[in-house]
């Protein structure tokens, strides 16, 4: 993460739309009297959503005014959380996970795709369609490598399907959310399961099978005891012969 500063070019003003304004009032009312400041994150979040997913200075000030806070308090929040974009982002804002599991599964290649297609981090492509940012773990390690584009996760990426995904998004074609390799959520890929492969799991024949194991154990214990008894008898007999 780098030092986060407000963008140089800022809009003149910001005002919540009437719907968002009403929503914000409801949100503020959730907190007890004197604790309204706690509503700052939802409000900033909504302001960002309203403003093409980035948070301009007038929005920070408007939210601070709504909550009766010094501006610096709102700026502290806006610069603390990486989820607030302080500069314009592309129509499709790609947050590419670069944390260990994704990195091991090829996130570096995806970064190269981004760099080649879009440019450096936080750079908005010329058509305004894309910008990207490497982020910390987004918690979808089962489907590594992955990226969040706007509000959705796109998983099991590789340079090919990621490139196609970006093409489709740019062209406005419908895309599939989630895994891009046909996996169902985070289930194993078809035919590659390593556990739960026993067919009996699914036909009911395993029900109560745990008892068999114990019956088996009992028989083994009995035969072992009999063996030991036999050995002792043999030892006693040979002692008698020696004497």
């Amino acid at each position: 993460m780098t030092v986060r500063r407000l963008a140089e070019k800022q809009p003149e003003s910001f005002a919540f739309t009437p719907e968002n304004e009403a929503w914000a009032k409801k949100e503020i009312a959730k907190y007890p009297a004197g604790r309204q400041a706690s509503a700052i994150i939802p409000l900033l979040w909504r302001a960002q959503a309203q403003n093409d997913y980035w948070l301009p200075r007038p929005a920070i000030e408007a939210v601070a005014d709504m909550l009766g806070l010094p501006y610096i308090r709102a700026l502290e929040i806006a610069t603390f959380y990486a989820m607030f974009n302080l500069a314009p982002v592309g129509r499709y804002f790609i947050q590419l996970c670069g944390t260990t599991p994704c990195m091991l599964r090829g996130a570096e290649d995806l970064k190269k795709v981004c760099r080649d297609r879009i440019g450096g981090q936080s750079h908005v492509s010329a058509d305004g369609a894309f910008s990207w940012l490497e982020v910390e773990c987004l918690g979808a390690c089962c489907n590594a490598p992955m990226a969040q584009i706007n509000d959705d996760y796109y998983e099991d990426l590789n340079p090919e399907n990621f490139g196609k995904l970006l093409d489709d998004l740019a062209a406005g074609r419908p895309v599939k959310k989630g895994s891009q390799t046909g996996r169902k959520t985070s289930e194993p890929e078809p035919g590659k399961a390593t556990t739960l492969t026993d067919g009996r799991l699914y036909d009911g024949s395993l029900v109560g099978s745990w008892k068999e194991r114990f019956a088996d154990d009992k028989a083994k214990a009995e035969s072992a005891a009999a063996e030991a008894e036999k050995a002792r008898a043999a030892a006693a007999a040979s002692a008698v012969v020696k004497n």
């Binding site: 200075r57 010094p70 501006y71 610096i72």
Partner: peptide
């Protein structure tokens, strides 16, 4: 009681400053 100063950013990038 004026709330002039604050800490922006976090971690290694935390900075003490007034509003802009």
């Amino acid at each position: 009681g004026t709330g002039d100063m604050g800490a922006t950013g976090r971690g290694e990038d935390m900075e003490i400053a007034t509003y802009l």
